[in-house]
Amino acid sequence: MHSSDHSAHHPALAHHFQDLDQQKDATWLAMWVFLATEIMFFGGLFLAYVIYRSSYPDAFAIASNALNVNMGLGNTFVLIISSFTMAMSVYSAQMGQIGRLVVFLILTLILGSTFLGVKYFEYKDKFESHLVPGRHFDFAHHHDPKTGELLEGAHSESANKATEAHSSGHSEKAKREIQIFFSLYFAMTGLHAFHMIIGAGLLTWLIVLALKGRFSREYNSPVELVGLYWHFVDIVWIFLFPLLYLIGRHHHG
């Protein structure tokens, strides 16, 4: 059984695998298992989100309105398009069209960077509006971008005659709850953005390898695996976007 197969001489074959097929099977399985751990990882955060959203629906709706939906929506489109270009990269790799592969990888990288750029401006905005949880968190002077009314009041419209003590007691609690929303917002989108950065790194690495001519019709599993990862990260965003940005839209009643 000395594997004197000819595929054993492929430069990409690691020494401990019998042949390229076994190697490819192993890396595919590993990627799927890895994605399973990723689901569990995000799952913990989603669970916390679900619990606190059901405990504090009003605060979550108010806080959600402070997010910039347009930016979120734009980013969603960017990611969906990037998923398409990634799929095209994988297809090109499988067809052995290295020129097209490089083009699509670069497009995907640009789209991914666009997402991160938009995210940067969103974070910057939150930071300047004191919406980053911690010592400087402050929601009191935040205005609803749509109605211009103080968001605080939104949830106790009938409390028109509230005295100083009244509203301060109230806002302490609301502030805490809103802060929980923003903690989860930053934890979830931050973790997602971290995955995007890793993804961008992987794309760069693929582009370099593709330019070096490492990929061929026979050997392209790195492109496929990164593709799988990229789609996963996109899907996470598809869940994050409505959960974080859209819950407050219909809640103002």
């Binding site: 106790s156 009938s158 009244h166 109230h170």
Partner: peptide, 10 residues
């Protein structure tokens, strides 16, 4: 009832 009771938290 209106929301006009002070919060006694703290």
């Amino acid at each position: 009832f209106p929301a006009n009771m002070p919060a006694y938290q703290g």
